[in-house]
Design a protein around this nucleic acid. Structure first.
Lengths: 252, 252
DNA sequence: CGGTACATTGACGATGATCAATATCGGTGG
DNA sequence: CCACCGATATTGATCATCGTCAATGTACCG
């Protein structure tokens, strides 16, 4: 889940959308070349955040939408009493900040996990562009729909799944996302501390730790801190449900 | 939460958007009169569903987006193993089906709880309109952002809150929504069976029942089946957290 | 080499799930 | 009008899962 250094360096250079290696995953994927060039005007390329640094904070006015270019980030919301819930981990190509559109004020915070470079889209500029480029507006809408569907999957996990199932579902999801990005689907580094992962899954860190230990004991995977090597995808699949024909459940 | 009969009858008549009593809550709220008239062309007014009837089913191709005019509905997703998670209860004015936009295929199901009348928006027609009316596209985007933020609140509840807090948060949310619609915020009928509500909150029906009984015993509210009368909003607020200055937490 | 942050492991207890029994509502038909 | 039925809700007893708290272990960084 943490991006290899080679990719990190390559992507954090200032690159126009039309030459960016993420253009197939990112907003330009639905745009014509002319439109892509227009979009570039709204983009501040290659802003970089250090681990722990906020991209934006809940409650702050919406100034930018962000797209992760390299590195990774988490989104979280904070309740009035201070409890936090991590609502997503973000890999390159993902668009952050859409939940701020309604009141032009962020309803969640985003924090870099690794050293993370992003494209920042000035909201003002972006909003105008959307009005002028139906394709772009459409693309953003698709992105919002995707996030909605993913959040619903996560709600299902939180509401119905046991601790063990949650862990397995998460690992399979990461596996799929890594593979989609051209990395190994069976061996990767998680980019977040255990406590963040546990919070995301609605578990106590100790519980998560025990479950990973159990998986290891059962020969499903090897864990070493944040490094995961899945040795038996079938067994991992089996543990998400007794249902025989379970096609991968996704959190994203 | 169940709509009084008078309103139900009034709203289920065929009414143009420009004269609909929901126009302040619904898509036309951000449109000019001319645009509203254009929108009406995409709308099939006054389709009615009986309790238990599907508005759409998960996996089905997206044909219509729906707006609840009267009555109520639930949204739910079904996992590969058959477990279900209710992800929302919908009152008049709410737009349903946005999560289907990405793949033009519904990722959740919607089922009427009461006899429910809706406006159905032909997706084809609607999509064209969005390209032509930036205001409309914008309005839909705001709606999506609102749903996103609400889902995130719900994730917080599922991940961090105790059973008692979940129940209290839900009741306060319903209270606020009822008041926003001009009904009493302290006395209302829930439109869903206990099992649905429990599922939504990630609890067992028995647990929810016990918690409501406890609230009643503590003098916080009266429960009679689906009828709720809140007698002490402050106490209800108090039970969502020990934090002194907790401004209402919302699920919506 | 020592310190700090992070992760694991252990012992214990509490919260909430499960299962089954009982109660209540609403509708139907005698 | 009352008796009966099914669906829905409540209540009780029991138990498992998972959270809490504390102790121990391990990597990383100076």
């Amino acid at each position: 889940m943490s991006t290899p250094a080679s990719v990190k360096n390559e992507a954090s250079r200032t690159v126009a959308c039309s030459h960016c290696n993420l253009k197939k995953l990112c907003l330009p994927k639905g745009l014509t070349q002319a439109e892509t060039i227009q979009l570039e005007g709204a983009v501040e390329h290659a802003r970089t955040f250090e681990p722990g640094e906020h991209l934006y904070e809940q409650g702050a006015p919406l100034r930018f939408l962000y797209i992760v270019k390299s590195g990774s980030a988490k989104s979280l919301i904070t309740a009035a009493d201070g409890t936090e819930q991590i609502i997503g981990f973000h890999l390159p190509g993902e668009l952050l900040g859409l939940d701020a559109l309604e009141h032009r004020r962020h309803t969640s915070s985003a924090i870099a996990l690794d050293t993370t470079s992003v494209c920042a889209l000035s909201y003002e500029h972006f909003d105008q562009l959307c009005a002028n480029i139906p394709h772009l507006q459409h693309e953003v809408m698709m992105e919002a729909a995707k996030i909605l569907a993913d959040d619903h999957e996560l709600l299902l996990v939180m509401g119905q799944k046991s601790a063990e199932e949650r862990a397995a579902i998460f690992l399979l999801d990461v596996s799929a996302r890594m593979k989609a990005r051209g990395f190994s689907g069976t061996e990767f580094n998680l980019c977040m501390p255990r406590s963040d992962l546990a919070n995301y899954l609605g578990l106590a860190p100790a519980t998560l730790s025990r479950i990973l230990a159990r998986f290891e004991q059962e020969g499903v995977l090897n864990v070493n801190r944040r490094h995961i090597r899945i040795t038996s995808l079938p067994q991992l699949h089996a543990s998400i449900s007794r249902c025989e024909h379970c096609d991968a459940v996704l959190i994203d």
